[in-house]
Design a protein around this nucleic acid. Structure first.
Lengths: 184, 184
DNA sequence: GTCTATACGGCGATAGAC
DNA sequence: GTCTATCGCCGTATAGAC
């Protein structure tokens, strides 16, 4: 008899929403993977949207921790570390795409009320990139460009399934970053 | 009493699959928008996957026509015209993302059997870009990079909803293309 | 070609026993 | 905190009348 906590449920839902999508993940999927019954589920979360909120809050806090860790490396290394998300999560991104961009697009298509929450996670990255760029002596406007480039690499990896291509694109992004930080 | 043909159904399903996603578009949605009953629907398509196949076949043929038209402009103009899909379909892309990348990602998440068909549409663009690049005197390897860049701009537009940003990114892509074609 | 009627399963959600 | 039982709705899909 497993003991389910809101944290454990949110953790599992986070993974399933990423791997299968929010709309196509059911309570039965989450409960089944967790080893509890559907009924018990509602003791912790009243509605599906409540789980989504918990998952997004969880992601937001986790990303804040990551960004704080990376910032401690110094701005230049931090920016390169951002690019390396693509390398660290290579297999997952090739299989399921980018969790941030994927959720944004899905909620946009569903006209879901939680859409601003998903956009806020992307905004967290963009604002952080802008701050690190300024610290590294670059132009802060490049933050959104860099974020978009990363989204493009993730999409390309997901579409083609080509690992070598993904690695080449990541390498090119690192080179681009060095160029713009060195004043070209 | 509207007369429904397979073509009309596929055309409408194409639009709805793009705007709302495949999994979250029901027969009732399509039938309702078309003005026919659900029952009548099955006279034309036996299963939902059959509609998806028809939609993908339709998209493939339509894209082939576009690419043939653009190729007639000459390779250099053709490549710029590719980038301008983002401008021509600006509003739709901001609202629903890229139809090609979006379908690929959704089918990947659903582990859907039609996934290769969606990837084939992307492959059509990439192969065409490679051919045009060679004709324009550029390196054919840049085709996948350019396709990925366009995916990134679409994702960025969809996430941020920032029209001016999207236009700036498109402009930057045009400049990049001119640079690589002029031998930098 | 179009319709109504219907089958059957899975969904989100609730009630209440243990 | 966990379970079973149940509700009502909507999903895909089928049968058959007009």
């Amino acid at each position: 008899m497993p003991v389910a906590t809101p944290e454990k449920i949110a953790e599992l839902a986070d993974r399933l929403f990423y791997e299968r999508g929010f709309a196509t993940t059911s309570f039965a999927d989450i409960a089944g993977a967790l080893g509890i019954s559907r009924g018990n589920f509602y003791h912790h979360f009243k509605t599906k949207d409540a789980i989504l909120d918990a998952v997004m809050a969880r992601r937001l806090e986790q990303r804040k921790l990551w960004l704080a860790e990376w910032a401690a490396l110094g701005p230049r290394a931090a920016l390169h570390r951002f690019i390396d998300i693509l390398t660290v999560n290579e297999a997952k991104i090739m299989a399921h795409g980018c969790p941030v961009g994927g959720l944004c697009q899905e909620l946009a298509r569903l006209n879901h009320a939680a859409q601003p929450g998903a956009q806020a996670i992307a905004g967290l990255f963009i604002d952080w990139l802008a701050a690190q760029l300024v610290l590294a002596g670059g132009r802060e406007e490049l933050a959104r460009h860099l974020f978009g480039r990363a989204q493009g690499v993730a999409a390309l990896a997901n579409i083609t399934g080509d690992k070598a291509l993904m690695q080449a694109e990541v390498k090119a992004l690192h080179l681009w970053l060095d160029e713009v930080l060195n004043g070209e």
